[in-house]
Amino acid sequence: MTTPTLDYTPYVLAVYTVALVVYGGALWSWRRQAAQLEQRLREHGATPWLERNPGEPS
């Protein structure tokens, strides 16, 4: 391989954009989804499974 003559910057930017969109999008939508579901659970008067103390009945 020789010393690079190509400018790699567009590729680097593309990779970081893809990662930001995919990870950021997943983070955002999954947070929203979790919050919505747990909200609905509380409206039913139930405690989300993860916030329950060990041994507490469902």
Partner: peptide
């Protein structure tokens, strides 16, 4: 992200059961 999904899956199952 795993913890987030775990909360979602658990809440979804509880809701379905309710």
């Amino acid at each position: 992200l795993w913890a987030l999904r775990t909360r979602t899956v658990a809440a979804q199952r509880q809701l379905d059961a309710l």
